[in-house]
């Protein structure tokens, strides 16, 4: 019985999120556009997340290189280290780790901010003033997360590769030109484009889930905490599901 109730709750929640997402296209994309608020959100969501993304990307590149080296040395292919690290960062680790960091920082912040606005009746205040809160609060944030995550991922990938370059130079000496030449020679269009396209979907998922959880926050401060937390958990799970689907689709399209 409890299983049926849980399953029904899951279906209800899925339906509600789908309806909420549908409103993004039916309400959020219609004029009048909130361009000023969109720019404001791009600054908050993109620019202010850059230091955290840069730091984690740098450490990720460095650590990945240090961890991979012993295995490659064992097989006598240490010279392939830049190629291996470059492929891993650009195709998979860069987009996914950046998206997870982004979900942790931005998903929770959107969930908590909108949740707090909901419980203090600020969203109702917008509605009664004739302002469409979905358009002003949700559409701008979702657009900002969708546009900013690919940019952060590209920057993060670059910083991560620089970290990898330093990692390579801990035990051997490689010039920066040679390192990046090897990395870029091993990459082609089919490695970069699908990886960037999937970050658009990651960003969209983080924005929608954060806004949905905040918008549907229950009364009280506890509800705000739950919204922030569940926004991070659900968007992280969705990032892995989208990643799985993206891999399947790129394989089907012969891009792998």
């Amino acid at each position: 019985m409890a299983l049926i109730v849980s399953f029904k709750k899951f279906l209800d929640e899925t339906g509600n999120i789908a309806r909420f997402t549908g409103r993004f296209f039916s309400v959020g994309m219609k004029p009048r556009y909130e361009n000023r608020e969109l720019l404001n959100q791009c600054y908050n969501i993109g620019y202010l997340s850059f230091p955290l993304v840069a730091l984690t990307a740098f450490i990720m590149g460095l650590v990945l290189t240090m961890q991979l080296r012993p295995s490659l040395v064992e097989y006598g292919v240490e010279s392939q280290l830049p190629v291996m690290v470059g492929l891993a960062i650009v195709r998979e680790i860069g987009p996914v780790i950046t998206a997870l960091i982004f979900a942790g920082k931005i998903g929770s912040s959107i969930g908590a901010e909108l949740g707090s606005m909901k419980v203090t009746e600020q969203i109702d205040a917008m509605t009664v003033s004739g302002i469409k809160p979905y358009k002003y609060l949700v559409a701008t944030r979702v657009l900002a997360t969708t546009l900013m995550l690919p940019m952060l991922t590209i920057l993060g990938d670059g910083i991560s590769l620089f970290g990898a370059y330093l990692g390579v130079n801990i035990r051997s000496v490689t010039s920066i030109d040679l390192f990046f030449l090897q990395v870029f020679k091993s990459l082609d269009f089919s490695d970069v484009l699908p990886a960037i396209i999937k970050t658009l979907f990651f960003g969209f998922a983080v924005g929608i889930v954060g806004c949905y959880k905040g918008f549907n926050s229950s009364k009280g401060t506890q509800g705000v905490g739950v919204s922030a937390n569940s926004a991070v958990v659900l968007s992280s799970v969705l990032i892995f599901i989208i990643d799985l689907l993206a891999v399947q689709i790129t394989e089907l399209l012969g891009l792998n």
């Binding site: 707090s116 606005m117 203090t120 009746e121 600020q122 109702d124 205040a125 509605t127 009664v128 003033s129 004739g130 469409k132």
Partner: peptide, 19 residues
């Protein structure tokens, strides 16, 4: 509704100022 609401003011118990 938006049109009708322009004639109606609402003072919330919690004030609901945008913080």
């Amino acid at each position: 509704l938006d049109q009708a609401r322009s004639k109606i003011g609402f003072l919330f118990q919690s004030n609901a100022l945008y913080d």
